[in-house]
Design a protein around this nucleic acid. Sequence first.
DNA 1: AGCATTTACTTCAGTGCTCGAAAAAAGGAA
DNA 2: TTCCTTTTTTCGAGCACTGAAGTAAATGCT
Lengths: 408, 408
Amino acid sequence: MRTVAGADFVRRQNRGLVLSALRRHGPMSRTQLATATGLSNASLTAIGGELIAQGILQEGAPRTPPGARGRPAVEVTFNREAAYAAIIELDVNRVRCSLVNYAGGLADRTEVAVTAELFAETAPGDYLVARVRQLADRNPGEMSNLRGIAVSVQGVLDRKADGLLWSPIPHVAGASIAARLSEAFDVPVTLQKRGGLLAEGARLLYPELSNLPLAAIFVGSTVGMGLSAPDRSIGQESGTEFGHMNHVPSGALCRCGQKGCIEAYAADYGVLRAAYGVPDQVAPASSVPPAAYQELIHLAQTGRRNVIHAFHLAGRALGFGLSRLMTVAAPAHIVVTGPGANAFELMRGEIEAALRESLVCRIHGTPPITVHHDEREPIFQGMLRNVLDALDDGFAGTASEARLSSVR
Amino acid sequence: MRTVAGADFVRRQNRGLVLSALRRHGPMSRTQLATATGLSNASLTAIGGELIAQGILQEGAPRTPPGARGRPAVEVTFNREAAYAAIIELDVNRVRCSLVNYAGGLADRTEVAVTAELFAETAPGDYLVARVRQLADRNPGEMSNLRGIAVSVQGVLDRKADGLLWSPIPHVAGASIAARLSEAFDVPVTLQKRGGLLAEGARLLYPELSNLPLAAIFVGSTVGMGLSAPDRSIGQESGTEFGHMNHVPSGALCRCGQKGCIEAYAADYGVLRAAYGVPDQVAPASSVPPAAYQELIHLAQTGRRNVIHAFHLAGRALGFGLSRLMTVAAPAHIVVTGPGANAFELMRGEIEAALRESLVCRIHGTPPITVHHDEREPIFQGMLRNVLDALDDGFAGTASEARLSSVR
DNA sequence: AGCATTTACTTCAGTGCTCGAAAAAAGGAA
DNA sequence: TTCCTTTTTTCGAGCACTGAAGTAAATGCT
């Protein structure tokens, strides 16, 4: 719903423009900012001065390039102390908690290995509160200026994005996470799905992808997928459940309890099951050690037929999933990440064959597929960008308060 | 990409707000408009006066409700002559061409039956130009103020939405349509996919659906699907190819030439083929007379086992397609339209069974399914709304010209 | 008929924002 | 020192919005 615009709206918009330009292109002088945003120099004096007075931005040392002629430009940067945010990666076997400053720098970080029983004993919300509290104790000054928390999760979000209705992480479904953290630290908390973050992060990591709609899939102990398009900035929609898209009706038993999900063929446990000829209706292993999965890949690479076949089945499941996805979303590029990225060459043939069977690919061509082995970095970068964008957005709207706060 | 805001931007935004309120809630007094948009009465005097001076809006007769006390309110309406638009429905067997005025009223309409060979002889673009020209000859005054053309199509749009890369309508693939019409009449032309229009139209036709994300499927000589969410207004993304989502790898031969598409099971020709035990690799009938399809439905309703089975296969294909769709889009409501809507009860069991097999539906519940037999009305309404919204958008931006044009 | 009342709309003064042009600032070069 | 160049700031004008006060147009009451 569009809303009525007035002078304050204009200021908010243009402050946002300035912050956004700074976020995307790094420190700049006022004059550069003016041309980057399209605002006049006069407006930049006003807006820049206001943002600096509010402690959101700060002036750097005058930068004098060798042999410069006129008055030296003075760079404007984010004031790193203007705000801090916590970024929590909640995974099956670890919780990583990072404290970042407003300039995007890492201030502190904790990482804890997590067992399957943990959340049976401690409510996930309480546990994450404790993790953030630990950061707070070590960084009292910074944490007093905490302005947001982002949590990456796997599974199906509830309607309010407060917690998960279902998750591959044991015992987290049904627990309040966002509200719990939010009341504990009195800051906005967002839950973000790994798949979408992966896609956004890949866009940031590969500049050549930054203007394409893209899909990122994660293959490992689960199968996840996210979409990211250049325009719509934050927020995405509710995310996807690609791993639990049906591949074969009444097919292999999945960890989610349904039959025939892509994940039941393409996640580590699915491949393991198929490689050793275990009937696909047998309940999947509760977890597969990373080393065991790597060993499977190694076996396939050295020619073990039954293991190769298992990866072919995995590729086929992924390929038909992508082919079906293409009829609805049509990404122009696909990124494959996670432990399974190491097995991509084993699956590539089946994936591409399945894609070729789709009308969309026949017409538009099959989208190129890039392999990015590590998944943690794009996820973190995606969250970092989202969190900072949200802070920028908040600061953009603080214009009218400026006049008030400068009084006191 | 956000752009710099100034006073002109504010005016455009607020003009848009006024036009949008009028479009959605019908004629209103200035005072009502002020409360509906959130603008002040003073602003409405200014904006309303400007819009009236530009001939975009007009004042109606003072409306005096029985027993009213004060000064009577004067209603503000669209000036129906402010602009005209052509709406073209391009179907397999007919072309309907409607001329509508800015108030949304129908000014004239032609409808022509079309044969399969037509576009082999006449380029589709030329043919449509002739159709619009015919309207122009009959309505010279109106057509001199033509401001836009919208065309509903089926198939895969090319990147520029100028024509179709593939279509179930013979001989239209590859032809320039939008550019051809645009240069002939010097107005903007948009090609819109039937599926998306169906979803948008259904939202307009059923007020109770207006705030839900929904999916509309068309079942008939083809299978189509469109998504529509409450927020993002015009433009949608590139549309979907649901009918050609794979249902069974290497399955039944589809008209598109691929194997195993949903359409190959659920469109009329797929059901016909299955009902009569024709092998599913046999090339599909090039067209199925509507009466023959109705007869099939009748046979199934009277208990013919093999026909019932064919509809079950169709339902299963649609159901698994929807189940797969749910993992990516998650509509809260599904609308079924087209000739196949008459057969919905024959397919319902299989559709719902397939949906129940999906994780998303197990968790969020299966979305309710509404049957809307007619498909023409929602398609037309969807296009009408889109065209008028585009005109509104254009008029909203004419603010600065107002001062100029009032001079001459 | 005349005046009060009610509701719709307009006018006016005030404020905030952007912009272009001119002025000031801050160094290097001559 | 004085000139030149480039960056910033200052200043006046123009626009749009708002709240408050004023005007318009009709009904109802005396």
